[in-house]
Write a protein that binds this DNA or RNA. Structure first.
Lengths: 354, 354
DNA sequence: TTGTACGCGTTATCAG
DNA sequence: CTGATAACGCGTACAA
């Protein structure tokens, strides 16, 4: 753990100037003899270039930050899995932040962009406040947001289409003959919570189903909360016959409690989750889930960011990843690989507005 | 995205020297008037300190790297979940590497420690080669290894006890009356693969059971491999009545194929996984699994590293986290929260030898 | 208390 | 082709 050698050390050893050392190390034209001496000295000393000094000079850190809402949520982990290799291939390191969806923490991360320890940031906020928008506008490095931001926000943006996703699920449940379809949602002051709640209501209306407040329960996006929520719901509407859950964790919590309450899934209650995480395929019974393309969104975000880091000042772009319904035993009544409904392909459009 | 202000900008604006600015910013004694002017200027300019320059000077980056073998493996994610907050609380950022257990990649990470972009490293190699040991000995920053290294290696080291873990599982299966206990292992040239294979053999011997090569299949630590392996095994030993799997992913793959083959779990074949990941609890049927304390190991590793970053030159330490058998439906035949066997507590001992 | 000047390790410019 | 030398932004002895 001795103090590492620097180009100065090498220069002395090789009997040349530090400028020559730098040139050799960077592959610039050099006399053979000089190159040989420098390389030899570098090898003997076990020289490794100092990334910090290099960054100070070049103003690039070759690091990118990913601020995920929750390290425990498999949906974000799916994004991480895609982001990681894309960045690595492009020569960037990944700095991981976990904000627990706390606004102050997210603002903190945006603020710390000014410290210039990364060249860019990918962030997935659950709530988008005024403060977020201000910080985004003033950000000192490129940012890509995974999640929806207000129209006109000048930020690269990858969004899911949970509205269509919810509709796919509700239509599916309706087609199975379910008419008392409940919803276990996340907090309504989050972007996804609000969108999924509205979509549920809309889908019911379009099918001519009555919207019943008792059928809707709100909790956090965690497993335990899903259990609590479904318990409440069963209390108010014992004959509920289907559940649309705002994410897979909530759905798994619901399965736990439904089982304990003696309800058969899907015979008595069909359950649909959202995000199509690994847990959905592994659960008992296997969970029908709406994929919002976590992996694709992560990949798209990474590519968008790299593009901006290399490229230039183009207009902000919005990428929307379409949802897919993955049918499994929790609604279909049969186990197996599952069937996929919904369209493929990806929508990419440029945003012109101010 | 304008070029950020520096202490020079502030100095000019406030009409003082950069030294004074630096002092104010670092809370060193300063005249009130000066402090006021500097703070005002800093505020107006939206100054944020440059982490890179600061690191160059201080020789500390306040970053720590975690090199995990596989971003897709929930066991490592469990570690990540614990490591992240510990580092964050101590003011460190987390740089994430995924090596896919490729030796060259791991060596690369160790080598890049010389670039000084992090103050320390936590690494979980699946194989530990001579090259690893050489690089570790020459490492220019503190390293903590999660996983077993040869005795005498002078590195902080957090290990699981998979030998005892396998024994807990085999004893459990034996107690359930199973006598044709197969094993689906990972590659034997990995540290965990070798340890678990040896432990399996040993446990059988102690129980007076015959070791049968046909009952042992080797694949990679992935889900699909588990399926392939169990298919082979069923082919050779159709009446196998229990399976010890080297990790949960393999076990899940096995469940898939057993189901497809018409075997009932656990009636026909009892299945035990290892790592006790989230997937075990969610699977169908819920998977009995040996917890090797991924979370605890991650936490211990982070604490060990922080300790060394702050503290000094103490002897390398070894922390061993004891295993626990978590019994679920895949062996017990009943669903539910599961029962825990095995001892609690943590062994901590100092390593003296060279 | 404050300012000047130097060094952290590199890269890049500009004479020679 | 090579060698001084000036940045990059910050912290800090040292002198005033």
């Amino acid at each position: 753990m001795a103090d590492g050698p620097t180009i100065t050390t090498i220069a002395e050893r090789a009997g040349v100037s530090i400028a020559s050392v730098s040139r050799v190390l960077n592959g610039l034209p050099t006399r053979q003899e000089t190159e040989r001496k420098v390389m030899a000295a570098a090898d003997e000393l076990g020289y490794v270039r100092n990334a910090v000094a290099r960054s100070l000079k070049s103003r690039r850190t070759h690091q990118v930050a990913f601020a995920m809402a929750d390290v425990g949520n498999p949906a974000y982990l799916a994004m991480l899995r895609e982001i990681q290799p894309v960045l690595k291939a492009a020569g960037y390191r990944l700095v991981l932040h976990s904000t627990d969806a706390v606004v102050a923490d997210e603002i903190d991360v945006l603020h710390s962009l000014g410290e210039r320890y990364v060249d860019g940031l990918i962030m997935s906020p659950l709530r988008v406040t005024e403060q977020h928008l201000e910080m985004l506008a003033a950000a000192r490095a490129p940012v890509v947001i995974i999640g929806s931001v207000p129209e006109g926000t000048r930020v690269d943006n990858v969004r899911a289409d949970s509205r269509t996703g919810v509709r796919l699920a509700i239509d599916h449940l309706y087609a199975l003959g379910r008419r008392r379809i409940g919803m276990l949602n996340g907090p309504l002051d989050t972007v996804p919570g609000a969108a999924r709640g509205a979509a549920y209501r809309e889908a019911l209306a379009d099918l001519g189903l009555h919207y019943d407040e008792d059928l809707v329960r709100i909790g956090d996006f965690y497993r335990a909360e899903g259990g609590r929520a479904v318990a409440e719901l069963l209390d108010r509407v014992p004959d509920v016959d289907a559940l649309m859950c705002a994410n897979d964790l909530i759905a798994l919590g619901a399965l736990d409690v439904l089982r304990a309450a003696g309800k058969r899934v899907p015979a008595d209650v069909a359950v649909v989750g959202m995000d199509d995480t690994d847990l959905a395929a592994a659960s008992w019974p296997a969970l029908t889930s709406v994929s919002l393309g976590s992996a694709e969104r992560g990949k798209a975000a990474a590519e968008l960011l790299l593009d901006r880091l290399q490229g230039g000042d183009r207009e902000p772009r919005v990428v929307t990843v379409p949802p897919r319904l993955v049918v499994r035993a929790s609604t279909a009544g049969t186990a197996g690989a599952g069937t996929v409904h919904g369209d493929a392909g990806r929508t990419k459009r440029k945003e012109g507005g101010a």
